[in-house]
Design a protein around this nucleic acid. Structure first.
Lengths: 209, 209
DNA sequence: ACGTTTCGGTACACTGGCGTATCGGAAGAC
DNA sequence: GTCTTCCGATACGCCAGTGTACCGAAACGT
């Protein structure tokens, strides 16, 4: 809390911190990289300090502890991969969503894997993970579905509508365990065509482009 | 390997180990309990020793190290929750599968959460996790689908068939992050009815009992 | 130009887990 | 009944990471 202030209000008259926002972002990206590489438990303050060429004292001055640093790093990376998508049809939207998720999956899937267990044991971390990586994308997908309902593409009470976002998030997390491979663009697209759209009652061949 | 022998062949003439199979199972269940509670990284040999009322030396004598102990514990719990299911229709099979998974989810979901990241960094662990918890259930589901194809319930080239197991495993892993709740029986049943069966082209209301 | 502030780097105490060594005592072998 | 073997327990050295303290140097404010 007080540790954040010094990072953010640094253009003030008092000039309390020399860590520019760009420098702070370097720290955050280093933290996220290390998380992806080794996971939350293996992330060390010394590792962050080494990668960013700074002293541990700087990290502890600014963020206080490792959990706070990770939370701050997460808050710095709100994903908005899907919010701009609006092709006019739900099938088109979901196809583009599959592409966008697949394109960014090299970044986000390892992060979620690294943090999912730690997040279930720390409420702050869970909150940060959901707010930064999960909810924005989920909300975007739900918006697509909502639009489709308003257009009459699918009925308002379509029971499968509720599960669209859960399915996409789910296969992202399931595939590495099933086939030891990241869920990439091709796999997600095939999944959307083969399972998600049929479940909604949309014929993949007949809708969209 | 040699450490396993002493546990297993203890009714021989030489009587090399006093650790009976029942006692070994106590160790394994303790390991799995601790994994569910705190995760792989937080699992300590000292914690296992304390919970099983034994000395660390016993653990190191029998299993050598923490990864080997965990792998052995996993191999001791092959799940066969779904292999016996055969109701005659795919819809009925999947409904029973949802119930069975939901009933056991308090046990298996935390375990998968605890191990999924560690497994992606250790091939032995990944192998053990897949062989003990994942592949048996996946294979059972695929068998159900295969039977349905042979019965003519669904076409042989139904594109959604490939994804049934991924869908079920996926929502199990997605729901805790979405709603901070374990995927229980009710949720899984609703998911099967609302998404899995429709994706396969089966009308939930018309099939099964 | 000078004083202040904060950074980067190192050194340090402290904690906790790993893996080893050792030992008394109990249980089975003969 | 003795002897062997293995268990349970404890103590120990080792290493890694945390968080603190301290210092010189560089950057900024005035």
């Amino acid at each position: 809390m007080s540790s954040h202030d010094s990072v953010q209000e640094q253009a003030h008259t008092s000039r309390r911190s020399k860590i520019t926002p760009e420098r702070a972002q370097e720290f955050y990206t280093a933290v996220l990289e290390l998380l992806r590489e080794s996971g939350y438990e293996s992330l060390t303050m010394e590792g962050v300090a080494a990668r960013t060429r700074c002293g541990k004292s700087t990290l502890y001055r600014q963020w206080g502890s490792k959990p706070e640093l990770v939370v701050a790093a997460l808050h710095s990376t709100r994903r908005m991969l899907l919010s701009h998508i609006d092709t006019g049809s739900l099938a088109g939207d979901l196809r583009e969503a599959a592409q966008a998720i697949g394109a960014g999956s090299g970044r986000d899937t390892p992060l979620m894997h690294a943090l999912s267990h730690a997040a279930l044991q720390s409420p702050e971390l869970l909150c940060a993970l959901r707010e930064s990586l999960i909810l924005p994308e989920i909300a975007a997908i739900d918006t697509m579905v909502q639009r489709a309902m308003e257009r009459g593409e699918i009925p308002m009470d379509n029971p499968a509508a509720e599960f669209v976002s859960a399915q996409l998030l789910g296969v992202m997390r399931a595939r590495p365990l099933l086939e030891a491979k990241i869920a990439d663009e091709a796999y997600l697209t095939r999944f959307v065509e083969s399972a998600v759209l049929p479940a909604l009652g949309l014929d993949p061949a007949a809708t969209g482009s």
